[in-house]
Amino acid sequence: MKAALQDFIIYMSEVKKASVNTIMSYQNDLTKLIKHLANQNITDIGKISETSLNSYILNMEREGMAPATVSRNIASIKAFILYLVRKGRLQNDPTERMHAPKVEKKPPQILSLNQIKGLLEQPDISTIKGIRDKAMLELLYATGIRVSELISIRLDDINLKNRFLRCCSASKERIIPFGNMAKQALENYFIKARSELVGNMDTNICFTNLSGEPMSRQGFWKIIKSYGKIAGIQDEITPQILRNSFAVHMIDNGADIQSIQELLGHSDAAATQVYMQNRNKKVREVYAQAHPRA
């Protein structure tokens, strides 16, 4: 069964062009499923049944896993089973009657404008590391790109003169403008810091770690969390929260939802629509405060 999983992962990567994060989720979710099935003495693909899969889902729920986590696992299982059916390795689809639990859609967590300002002011731009961190944070908030996209940026993806970034993910490419603050931070980085970081290494990666190697997602997460702590931000802070903040702040200042969808690189409009929840909440609050008969 592990060999079938590896075939599926290769298929999702090379044929479906799924993102790195999606592939990692499939790998993690399905590895746990296979381990559970093995514990039930089910090691042959042909023995996978509706009952065995439902027992796994019930087990996750008994362990107190969040509905969103269970729902994601079900999506992974369905995708894997469908692949096996299409390849003729399963005759019937045992997930046909499997339904994901209802997940409450909460407004995305964001930072206020003051919190953003405080966060972006934390890097010490008298140091090489601070100059790099300032450029990364400014660009992340200016464009709303994913952290995986940020650490993959190459030098020729950035046009400083016209202030835009070319962002490539899977088979998609989009052009994202950025403002003057991000431009200044990038210019400072290219003039004062990048050559010091990469040394004699031949690399086209824009942002590197202090050893001149490509930065990891985990490495940047540590950076942003440390600055959040210094800035006195009590809530959890992640690169995704900066992406959320970019979208909501743009909408609050008049950007239309279609433009936000294009900037964020969402293929499904529903993924972008979630950012309107914050806007609708704000409108209701303004109405409640301003209308004489509210």
Rank of each mutant, 00 (worst) to 15 (best):
A4H: 12
L5A: 06
Q6H: 13
S13T: 15
K17Q: 15
K17E: 06
D29M: 03
I34M: 10
I34S: 01
H36L: 10
H36W: 11
L37G: 09
Q40S: 09
D44A: 14
I45D: 07
G46R: 11
S49F: 08
E63N: 14
M65G: 00
M65A: 03
T69P: 03
S71E: 02
S76L: 01
S76K: 01
K78M: 01
F80Q: 01
I81V: 15
Y83P: 04
V85I: 13
K87F: 02
L90F: 09
N92G: 00
N92Y: 09
D93T: 10
T95E: 02
K102H: 13
K106T: 14
S112F: 04
S112G: 12
E121V: 01
Q122N: 09
G130K: 04
L139H: 09
A142C: 04
T143M: 03
R154G: 15
I158A: 13
I158F: 05
I158K: 10
S169E: 12
A170R: 14
K172W: 07
G179L: 03
N180V: 14
R194H: 09
E196W: 06
L197Q: 11
N204R: 14
N204S: 13
S211C: 09
E213F: 04
R217W: 06
W221S: 07
S226E: 12
R243L: 02
N244M: 02
H249M: 05
D252V: 03
I260C: 11
Q261T: 08
H266K: 06
S267W: 00
S267K: 11
S267T: 13
S267H: 03
S267L: 02
M276N: 12
N278S: 15
V286S: 13
V286Y: 14
A290K: 11
